[in-house]
Design a protein around this nucleic acid. Structure first.
Lengths: 187, 187
DNA sequence: GTCTATAAGGCGATAGAC
DNA sequence: GTCTATCGCCTTATAGAC
């Protein structure tokens, strides 16, 4: 992450955590300021507006995805890399069941209704889809099929996070991850 | 739907439509009252509170799902019935891309953060999952696998609605539906 | 039953002292 | 840069006339 004043970092940390757990709509600037131990008025020294806070978190999610890819891309084969992506969902299944997918829930909330942030909100999904597409192409799939397979994988991961969250049951993620693991073996 | 005073029906119609398009968080009681051409104060004659409106819409979605199953269940084979479910997503893809899945987006918003409505919010998903499970069992799948297959199908449909909405692109639904169609042929 | 008017509280955003 | 104080608006919910 680019250098950041300590206080801005604290605010962004607090905002990311609160918005993940309570949703953007139910997180107030006062909540964020209190959690970061900063006065309410000071928030506006670092952020132009409430939407600007959302933008900062969106950028953070993108950075986290880049970091993940950097790590996973060291694996030898595209199949191993795709498996590693599925394993991330297994590792985070308890949080996903409680609060939803950190990427999907935010994108969903900000894209809805074609608000002012809907453009940026799609970016994390585009990254995920683009990366998966590359892996499937490296597996020898023709262009169009690689897109379809990437779409299917990301949809499955996002959908199972949604279901797990609605049901409050992390085991559904375990079941779907097992399914996707088998699928990746044969695809 | 059970009998309902004309005015309550108008309010529920307006609320369902507005909440679908703008989300629950961004829909006010004044919006709903105006759209239904009812005075703001009158809303409280038919609904105890704002959350009570959400509950009514949740019940309506459940009713719509029941109606859909009633219609689809007339098809001869479980495979045809599962295909018919996927076709619903094809038919509604333009609206899904604009506003998200009417079931998924509402459940997501109400389940998030374990709010007071998270219990009821899971119900539509349970109906979808239960029905799919039955179809796969009728296809001869053992119990545990039938659950996993239902989970996979519903996750794929919910996930692709989410992606289509974030990207604003109904064609992603078309692509995933084609994939699921092939999958249902072979499964 | 249906309306208007308003109470009560919360929130984003700004002003201005230090 | 950081704070406290507050403005102005919006929203849920209620009171009370008709």
């Amino acid at each position: 992450m680019p250098e950041m004043p300590d206080k801005k970092a604290r605010l962004t940390d607090a905002a990311a955590d609160l918005i993940y757990r309570k949703g953007f709509a139910h997180t107030t600037l006062a909540d964020i300021a209190a959690a970061a131990k900063v006065a309410l008025g000071s928030v506006y020294y670092y952020f132009k507006s409430r939407n600007d806070v959302a933008r900062a978190i969106l950028e953070r999610r993108q950075f986290e995805i880049e970091q993940l890819f950097e790590k996973i891309d060291r694996l030898q084969t595209p199949r191993e890399r795709l498996r590693a992506l599925v394993e991330v969902w297994i590792e985070t299944r308890d949080n996903d069941a409680r609060y939803g997918c950190p990427i999907g829930s935010l994108c969903h909330e900000l894209a809805k209704g074609r608000g002012p942030l809907s453009g940026e909100a799609a970016e994390p999904f585009k990254m995920l889809l683009g990366w998966c597409e590359v892996q499937f192409r490296l597996l020898g799939k023709p262009d169009q099929e690689a897109v379809a397979l990437g779409l299917h994988l990301v949809a499955a991961l996002q959908g199972i996070s949604l279901i797990a969250n609605a049901l409050g049951d992390p085991d559904t993620i375990l079941a779907e991850a097992a399914y996707l693991g088998d699928w990746l073996r044969d695809v």
